[in-house]
């Protein structure tokens, strides 16, 4: 296990190194002065610029500059947003929880819908149910998310009036920002309208979470289906069948567990995809998350914002990736042992 942890940390370290190198080089690739791009100080006076030059060591070699950038990052200083001239770190602390909330709930939703459907498809391999599920999966996989979001709003918000179309919570509720995760904040608040607010927040997350979950759910369907099919082919299932266990017993006691393991491996990989979808969904549902903020930054040509947004989002994705790796390893001892070479 120790070796495994060290390997993962090593991977994380290396990845972060590459990622920071990438964002650092972005400040040179973006139009304008790299120093301004890094710090975001567009209205700096000459004296302030001198100070910045010292702080970011921009008169020294490229390696020193990179390390100066890293030390700023380590202090949690991502510079100022060029558009609003506020600290990006504080903006991100405000926005990231909303994205985490949306993407994790969507991930759960995708798994809880996708995996059972995939199992059903596999059990009914090449029968009608399998075909129907596969065709739905194909549609869900192909549908452009921005369009799906709009149609969902048109149908469920405007025509049926079931769910709200924008934001995390109706603005009449004044909930203090503590963790940024809306549900936790509501539970922590001492507002008399707490339960009303909670209900309102649940209604708000339904549409965006479903829209984000659609494409990943179809991927989980396919993953679950193929991993279940693979498991059903294995010898221990054949042995169980020969032993005379009923179909139900075989599926629930043996096949599901083992195929779930294979799926957990893929969650980390799917998460990057899911976050991309969440970014666009945030724009459509005016979800106050980092994806929407990042896209706004592009409209505003806020290079400091783009750089930091990329860094933070990718780091978030990596962390989820590595966490799922750990979960997988914890559940599957085999994975810990022969983990040499590619994983």
């Amino acid at each position: 296990m120790l070796v495994f942890i060290i390997r993962r940390l090593n991977l994380f370290f290396f990845t972060m190194l590459l990622l920071t190198l990438l964002t650092f080089s972005l400040s040179f690739l973006f139009p304008g002065d790299p120093l301004v791009n890094l710090s975001g100080q567009i209205n700096a006076t000459p004296q302030q610029l001198e100070q910045l030059k010292l702080a970011y060591k921009s008169d020294q070699g490229i390696m020193q500059q990179y390390f100066a950038y890293l030390s700023h990052l380590a202090e949690g200083d991502l510079g100022l947003s060029m558009a609003s001239q506020t600290q990006i770190t504080s903006e991100i602390i405000n926005l990231l929880p909303a994205t985490i909330e949306l993407s994790l709930i969507a991930l759960m939703l995708a798994m809880f819908v996708g995996i059972p459907l995939g199992f059903i498809a596999a059990v009914n391999h090449r029968k009608t149910a399998d075909n129907i599920i596969l065709s739905v999966a194909m549609l869900g996989y192909s549908v452009p998310v921005f369009w799906l979001g709009l149609v969902a709003i048109l149908v469920f918000s405007i025509q049926l009036g079931w769910f709200p179309s924008a934001g995390q919570l109706s603005l009449v509720y004044e909930i203090e920002h503590v963790t940024g995760i809306q549900f936790i904040d509501i539970l922590l608040s001492d507002s008399v309208y707490k339960w009303q607010a909670f209900r309102d927040a649940s209604a708000h997350i339904v549409l965006p979470a479903c829209v984000v979950a659609t494409a990943p759910a179809t991927i989980f369907i396919r993953l679950a289906r193929s991993s279940m099919l693979a498991v059903l082919e294995t010898h221990y299932i054949k042995a169980a069948r020969a032993k005379g266990l009923t179909f139900r017993q075989i599926i629930f006691r043996h096949a599901v567990r083992n195929s779930l393991l294979q799926i957990i491996r893929h969650i980390g990989l799917q998460f990057a995809n899911l976050v991309t979808i969440a970014m666009i969904t945030e724009v459509i549902f005016s979800w106050p998350g980092i994806g929407r903020w990042l896209i706004e930054s592009i409209y505003q040509r806020d290079y400091t914002g783009i750089q930091s947004g990329l860094l933070v989002l990718s780091t978030f994705i990596f962390i989820v990736h590595i966490v799922t790796d750990f979960i997988y390893a914890a559940l599957n001892p085999l994975a810990r042992e022969h983990n040499h070479g590619t994983s």
């Binding site: 709003i153 918000s157 405007i158 009036g161 769910f163 709200p164 179309s165 924008a166 934001g167 005016s286």
Partner: peptide, 10 residues
């Protein structure tokens, strides 16, 4: 988005 919010009672 404003029109949508009006129609969806937001």
């Amino acid at each position: 988005a404003r029109l949508t919010k009006l129609l969806a009672n937001e």
